[in-house]
Design a binder for these strands. Structure first.
Length: 157
DNA sequence: GCCAACGTTGGC
DNA sequence: GCCAACGTTGGC
C-alpha cells in the first residue's frame, strides 16, 4: 500500500470554492483545467486517500480554507478535447492526452481561514513554495510536518 | 486594476 | 539552444 501523501491545491473562490465542493453531489469534483506541466505531474503522482489542503487564491483573504482528499488516481482531463471549453488544448491528442486531473472530495472546512500571512509567519513553513513570492504553482506537495502545522492552525482557529 | 514573477512559445 | 515577447497567475 502506498504511503499517504499531502498536497495543496489552489482555486479562485469566484471560480470554484470549498463551499462549492461541499455542495457537490457526493461532495466530489474533478479538478479540471490545470494546464501547467509541473502541477500536472504532481496530480499524476497522487493516490486515492492523499490529503489535500484547499487554498483560496486571488481573493480578499488568500489562504488555506479547509481539507479535502484525493478521490481517485489521475485520468485524462476531458476539457482539453472540448473546443467549447476555455481550457481546450487543440494540440492535445486523444490517443496521447497531454493533461490529467484527479477528483477531489470534501473533508471539512476550517473554522477560520489560515491566511497566507499566517502561513508566512509560522515557523516550519518557510520552505514550502506556497509562501514564496511570485509562486504560481497551483498544485504542490506538502510535507507531513507542514501538513500537521497547517491543520493545527486551521482546526485550532 | 496594477504589476512582478513566472511559464511557454517561437524566431533565429 | 538562446532569449525576447507574450500570456497568465496571484498578491496587493
Amino acid at each position: 500500500m502506498a504511503e499517504r501523501r499531502y498536497w495543496l491545491m489552489k482555486s479562485e473562490p469566484s471560480e470554484f470554492s470549498i463551499e462549492d465542493l461541499q455542495a457537490r453531489p457526493g461532495q466530489t469534483e474533478p479538478w479540471d483545467g490545470v494546464r501547467n506541466y509541473q502541477a500536472r505531474n504532481f496530480m499524476r503522482a497522487m493516490q486515492a486517500g492523499d490529503g489535500v489542503l484547499f487554498y483560496h487564491s486571488n481573493c480578499e483573504l488568500p489562504g488555506v480554507v479547509g481539507v479535502a482528499e484525493v478521490a481517485c488516481t489521475a485520468y485524462p482531463d476531458p476539457t482539453q478535447f472540448d473546443p467549447g471549453d476555455k481550457h481546450f488544448d487543440p494540440r492535445s491528442r486523444p490517443e496521447d492526452p497531454r493533461w490529467s486531473l484527479v477528483e477531489v472530495k470534501f473533508v471539512r472546512r476550517f473554522p477560520r481561514t489560515v491566511s497566507l500571512d499566517a502561513l508566512r509567519s509560522t515557523p516550519g513553513l518557510e520552505d514550502n513554495p506556497v509562501v514564496r513570492r511570485g509562486n504560481r504553482l497551483s498544485v504542490l506537495p506538502v510535507s507531513p510536518a507542514e501538513w500537521d502545522i497547517i491543520l493545527a492552525l486551521g482546526d485550532g482557529g
